[in-house]
Design a protein around this nucleic acid. Structure first.
Length: 505
RNA sequence: UCCUCCAUAGCUCAGUUGGUUAGAGCGGUUGACUGUUAAUCAAUAGGUCCCUGGUUCGAGUCCAGGUGGGGGAGCCA
């Protein structure tokens, strides 16, 4: 069996490929077929001359997503994606597909989400899933290369690990149980047994969030390291992000090109990531402190003006193109082309308008940011806009962070947590901390959070039997993929997204 | 839970200050065209205008409530 991915090895040879019709165009006596086999896409040329009248007639009947095998000669074709095409001498049809619902035309998200099981076949989704696969592989490789042990945490848990988030409740032999929102506490037990561990599994949050950054079910990677302090933790995070991203860029050149991802933005990863304290970050957000002569508030205002100018330009273009469409002497093809362009421009304007509607609120909230609050999505965007690299914000106010984070020496108002914010507005991709080892402090925080102390007896044991400084972090897989692929919405980063109000398919 | 926008053909969308028979493109079907890359030409089929109620001589259009969805806030990875 031969696959499209290896096509270059078979130049001028006759091979057989098996796959599906991704696209088709016809002329008299000739059919152009884009075949996809999962490993890639290739154009096949089916002519009446080569196939004979009967087979050619079958070929003409091939609908989108029909399954077939194509036997033919591999020919170099510079113009084609992948550089080759197949001159077919024989075809064997498995099935002529029914009318395929996903057309070549653009579709709305709601429609595509209902057809997610088919949407996954589209080029763009295909590329994203391939990148996801490599991201997963290189994350494992990163940790395995450094002798971390993959350590699975349970999915059913008897308690909420962090008081704030809403969890999915389920019935566990008559007792209430929750789907895990994090594996971290269990990873800590693992680190005390293995030294260096990482979990890699699904987590669940029942937040009624409707944003492009949230999923109800997502995959998280949580390393936990014995004898690591916060600085060592941050060193590892930086090494981790740099290594995995570089590996993936190298392994997924075709896919990222297909996605139109500008990979040059990742050159900055070679430089050290900025590390700033929460207190400094607040000053940047409010526009009180500048970085390289750039002020966060001004940047937002410039962005807003930029978007508004873009909208005006697109509106002007629509007027021009509408004139073409309304010209009775213009050719039909030209009119259609312009009509399509207008459709797309309108969609783009809609998106830009959403941004321009939001930015003023964001600026307001940034200006009025109160010290001690957590960052909102917009505050993160404002902050990351100042730096090329991912930004590490550390030493957070105690009340807004989880109970298990270690207090900063001599200042109980702050804890040794770190959030890593991805550039380009992709938001928080990593959250980590050094863990509290003082049992009294822990008990105090557990009580303060309103958590049930009995649920944490086992966790507290870790502080009684050979307690050591230790740290870890959590990476949201889908957010990481969004950043690497430049995805607008997190729902594209996972095969079957589970989000508020959606469980089908 | 709150703010905001939206719902018309299989899909993407028009639909004027409320007015007679609701439109276009794509896709489908049929035919014409040897090399196309969402761009040829022609013909043709295709509608519970999201639901319920109201205003009106008359509602796709206005009003109220509901349902579903997009974006954002909160919360978070």
């Amino acid at each position: 069996m031969k696959y499209i991915k290896q096509i270059s090895a078979y130049e001028n040879e006759v091979i057989t490929l098996k796959g599906w019709v991704a696209n088709k165009r016809e002329g008299k006596g000739i059919v152009f077929l884009v075949l996809r086999d999962g490993s890639g896409f290739i154009q096949c040329i089916l002519t009446e001359e080569e196939l004979g009248a009967e087979k050619f007639e079958q070929a003409r009947k091939l609908s989108l997503e029909s399954s077939l095998s194509v036997t033919g000669k591999v020919i170099k074709a510079e113009k084609q994606m992948g550089g080759y095409e197949v001159q077919a001498s024989e075809i064997e049809i498995y099935q002529i597909a029914e009318d395929y619902p996903i057309a070549k035309k653009e579709h709305g998200v709601d429609f595509l989400m209902d057809k997610r099981h088919l949407w996954l076949r589209s080029k763009r989704q295909w590329a994203i899933m391939r990148v996801r696969n490599k991201v997963i592989y290189y994350i494992h490789k990163f940790f395995q290369d450094r002798d971390f042990v993959n350590f699975d945490s349970p999915i059913f848990t008897g308690n909420a690990a962090e008081g704030s988030t809403t969890l999915f409740e389920t019935d566990f032999y008559g007792k209430p149980a929750y789907l895990a929102q994090t594996g971290q506490l269990y990873a800590e037990a693992g680190a005390m047994a293995q030294g260096l561990v990482y979990t890699f599994g699904p987590t669940f949050r029942a937040e009624k969030s409707k944003t492009r950054r949230h999923l109800s079910e997502f995959w998280m990677i949580e390393p936990e390291m014995a004898f690591y302090d916060l600085d060592m933790d941050m060193d590892l995070i930086e090494d981790f992000i740099r290594t995995v991203v570089m590996d993936v860029l190298d392994a997924c050149k075709t896919e990222l090109e297909l996605l139109g991802r500008d990979v040059s933005v990742f050159d900055m990863l070679k430089e050290r990531f900025p590390r700033i304290t929460y207190t400094e970050a607040v000053k940047y957000i409010r526009g009180e402190k500048e970085h390289n002569g750039k002020n966060a508030i001004q940047l937002q205002e410039e962005d807003l003006a930029g978007y508004q100018a873009e909208i005006k330009a697109k509106e002007a273009e629509i007027v021009e193109r509408e004139a073409v469409v309304n010209n009775p002497n213009e050719k039909k093809g030209v009119k259609n082309f312009n009509r399509n362009k207008i459709d797309r421009l309108k969609a783009e304007i809609k998106e830009l308008t959403e941004k321009t509607d939001n930015i003023p609120q964001w600026i307001e909230s940034a200006k009025n940011f109160k010290e001690g609050e957590d960052f909102g999505g917009s505050d993160e965007t404002v902050l990351t806009r100042l730096f090329a690299q991912p930004v590490m914000v550390y030493n957070w106010p105690t009340p807004i962070k989880a109970f298990y984070m270690k207090r900063v020496e001599d200042d109980e108002n702050f804890v040794k947590g770190v959030d890593v914010l991805a550039p380009e507005g992709f938001g928080e991709i990593v959250g980590g901390s050094e863990r509290e080892t003082n049992l009294d402090f822990l008990l105090e925080r557990i009580e303060h959070e309103g958590l049930n102390e009995e649920d944490f007896l086992w966790y507290n044991d870790l502080r009684k039997y050979g307690s050591v400084p230790h740290s870890g972090f959590g990476l949201g897989l889908e957010r990481f993929i969004c950043w690497i692929c430049d995805l607008k919405h997190i729902r594209e980063a996972i095969p079957f997204p589970r989000l508020y109000g959606r469980i089908y398919p």
